[in-house]
Design a binder for these strands. Structure first.
Lengths: 79, 79, 79, 79
DNA sequence: GTGGTCTAGACCACT
DNA sequence: GTGGTCTAGACCACT
């Protein structure tokens, strides 16, 4: 799976806004965006936390935060 | 509620990519992004179809498509 | 393909019930009934949206609603 | 659950048409019609074979045929 | 106001 | 031809 686009979406947190967006939020935003775009169909397995962590360079705990948020919002379900 | 940012998010569809992203997808992407960001808490009422339509200049039916998609994905629930 | 029968099935919406059944639901009901009856075998191509619209006099967007519903329920798949 | 309507829908098989519709098909047609109408939401549990058999007076084996057909068509899933 | 339904068009890429 | 997208209206019941 390509993670292209994450940097651009994540740029909200590096711009000089009044409040920095946390990294996990950038990841969550990116994944929800992919879901909307149809990159992942409903029912399909998402890339693993480990995979995203390795590919993006974020710590797995940060990626976990993103998944936890998406699950709380009802966007994804964990197995 | 400010709808600022929709145009920028929608700019994906005007870039010379291989396939233009439909407008309803831009709207859906924007709304899901707002949900992720916490602009709307779970249980909160989203801005109405009419409001988004008027504010953005899109036809209400286009906005409806976005809502329908978000509902199909389980991101939102309609009353 | 004959669309005979749609009017009769649609008559549910013109009777003085408490809430009128929307047209798209009549179309969906008719098509699912045909699928059950075996008029269309699994894998077979259904009549086009345009064809049904012209034959029945409904707007294509109304016919689309019926197809969208049938797809959401998993009764049909779109190409 | 009310089974009202089954008789009317099933009347296709008792009219003097060229080919009688089998009873299981009437049941299947009725259930699919209820699904379309939204009497049962996606994911909801349908009434049991036994319940339908007792309520309608059809043999359970006939009701089973209806369910088997609906499952083959992908309209329902059995647990 | 709000969402659900419906119409009658239009343009477009291409299964 | 076919479905996907989109518009700009309309009418209606009522969360």
């Amino acid at each position: 799976m390509a993670i292209t686009g994450l940097c651009e979406l994540g740029s909200r947190s590096s711009s000089g806004g009044p409040r920095e967006e946390p990294k996990w939020q950038s990841i969550a935003r990116y994944l929800s965006s992919e879901l909307i775009q149809g990159s992942y169909k409903p029912g399909e397995i998402l890339p693993s936390e480990n995979h995203i962590a390795k590919t993006t360079g974020f710590a797995r705990s940060t990626v976990r935060q993103a998944f936890a948020h998406l699950e709380k919002e009802g966007f994804i379900k964990r197995l």
